[in-house]
Amino acid sequence: MTKPVRYSPDVEQIEPDEAQTLAELEEQFRKILDTTSSDYGHAVRAVHAKGHGLVQGRLTIAPDLPQELAQGLFGHSGHYEAIVRFSTNAGDILDDSVRLPRGIALKILNVIGDRLPGSECDTTQDFIMVNSPAFAAPNPKKFLGNIKLLAATADKAEAGKKLLSAVLRGFEATMEAVGTQSTMLTTLGGAKPIHPLGATYFSQTPFRFGDYIAKFSLVPIGDNAAFSDENIHATGRPDAIREDLTAGLLQAEAKWELRVQLCSDLEKMPIEDASIAWDETESPFQTVATLTVPLQSGWNYGSSEEAEDRLSFSPWHGLAAHRPLGGVNRVRQESYRHSAEYRSHFNGCPIHEPAHIGEVEF
Results as ranks from 00 to 15, higher is better:
84 V>A: 13
72 G>W: 00
69 L>E: 02
66 P>R: 07
65 L>Q: 14
66 P>K: 01
65 L>W: 01
75 G>D: 02
65 L>K: 06
56 Q>P: 07
70 A>F: 04
78 G>P: 08
62 A>R: 03
78 G>W: 10
64 D>E: 14
63 P>W: 02
55 V>M: 14
71 Q>T: 04
60 T>A: 13
75 G>P: 09
78 G>F: 09
65 L>T: 10
60 T>V: 14
54 L>T: 02
83 I>N: 01
63 P>A: 13
76 H>S: 14
73 L>V: 04
83 I>D: 09
60 T>F: 09
64 D>G: 05
81 E>F: 11
80 Y>S: 07
77 S>H: 09
59 L>N: 04
56 Q>R: 15
77 S>M: 11
62 A>K: 07
77 S>Q: 13
69 L>P: 01
54 L>V: 13
82 A>M: 13
77 S>L: 05
83 I>V: 15
67 Q>F: 06
82 A>E: 09
73 L>E: 02
64 D>C: 10
78 G>N: 08
76 H>R: 10
68 E>L: 09
74 F>L: 11
73 L>D: 05
67 Q>E: 06
67 Q>T: 07
62 A>H: 00
72 G>S: 03
76 H>G: 02
73 L>T: 00
60 T>S: 15
62 A>F: 02
82 A>L: 14
75 G>C: 08
66 P>L: 03
79 H>M: 08
58 R>V: 15
69 L>Q: 06
69 L>M: 04
68 E>A: 13
74 F>G: 03
64 D>A: 15
70 A>W: 00
57 G>Q: 05
64 D>P: 03
57 G>F: 07
81 E>Q: 12
76 H>I: 12
70 A>P: 06
68 E>W: 08
68 E>N: 12
79 H>W: 05
78 G>A: 06
70 A>Q: 04
66 P>E: 09
